[in-house]
């Protein structure tokens, strides 16, 4: 009540306070419901997952922006001189202490309009790799393969490289590498890796998403590199694990040897 009285003493009527609280609560609930509904829709339309999920941060910005306008518009009603003074103070604050925050917010707006990546993409930003799970005005949240949430300020986009593995598409190429000894039957090993990829429950193949198996000579061993797409980028590691596991089991049953790590001979003193 003391805080309420203080606000009333500042000239803010109780009805206005009630209206402000109502607007903020309504904005919060609306943002939550819309976010939940869009996420539920996404699970039933995998092909449109990325383009629908990008609507989540956009609708949040619109909802909270509208709420801010409804709250501060009637509340402030600044005169021209007051507006100028506030602008000056705002500019000084930006210059001295909030420039990073402002840069991050501008980065967020650029992200929404230019879309170098979207919610649902697998990206590498400044060395951090993961799925974009949220794009707010200030920062982008990545979920790493270890299930860590990394918050990357949007301003990083202006200073670091951004690598996008799927560019808005639900499919993503996955590369699986297996090594065999130099004396192993490379043709048979390549066939095994190929069949492991195309028989996987996660693989996606069509004319626009082909698969390939490449062989590289590393002098003392050979690397079999299999490249194929998964239907859902969230299956990236499950696919790689499935192909690796089954390929190695087939190598073992067919006598295809994998190289061992060199053993350092103990020093004699």
């Amino acid at each position: 009540m003391t805080a309420l009285q203080a606000l009333v003493d500042l000239g803010i009527a109780q009805e206005t306070l009630t209206r402000i609280v109502g607007v903020l609560v309504a904005a919060y609930l609306t943002a939550r419901v819309v976010g939940y509904v869009l996420t539920a829709v996404v699970e039933h339309i995998p092909r449109r997952r990325i383009s629908i999920k990008i609507l989540v941060p956009i609708t949040r910005v619109l909802i909270y922006g509208t709420a801010a306008y409804l709250v501060f518009g009637p509340l402030l009603q600044l005169s021209a001189a007051q507006l100028l003074a506030v602008s000056g103070l705002f500019g000084a604050a930006l210059g001295f202490g909030l420039k990073d925050l402002f840069a991050a917010i501008i980065g967020g707006l650029v992200l929404v309009t230019e879309r170098p990546y979207q919610v649902g993409d697998k990206v590498t930003i400044d060395g951090d790799y993961g799925e974009v799970t949220d794009i707010d005005l200030r920062a982008t949240t990545l979920r790493t393969p270890d299930d860590s949430a990394v918050s990357v300020p949007n301003a990083t986009m202006f200073t670091a490289n951004v690598s996008n593995a799927n560019d808005g598409q639900p499919e993503m190429m996955v590369v699986v590498e297996l090594a065999v000894t130099a004396s192993a039957d490379v043709d048979r090993a390549s066939t095994i890796v190929k069949e492991a990829m195309v028989t996987s429950k996660y693989v996606y193949v069509d004319d626009d998403h082909p698969f390939a198996v490449l062989v590289e000579d590393e002098s003392y061993y050979r690397t079999i590199r299999g490249k194929a797409y998964v239907a859902d980028l969230r299956d990236e590691f499950a696919f790689a694990s499935d192909v690796t596991e089954r390929s190695m089991a087939a190598f073992a049953s067919e006598g295809i040897e994998i190289p061992e790590a060199p053993v350092r001979a103990p020093e004699h003193r």
Binding site: H44, P46, K201, V203, Y204, V205, A231, D232
Partner: peptide, 9 residues
């Protein structure tokens, strides 16, 4: 449709 939804080849 149940299998198409998961985009299983």
């Amino acid at each position: 449709p149940a299998t198409d939804r998961g985009r299983i080849l």
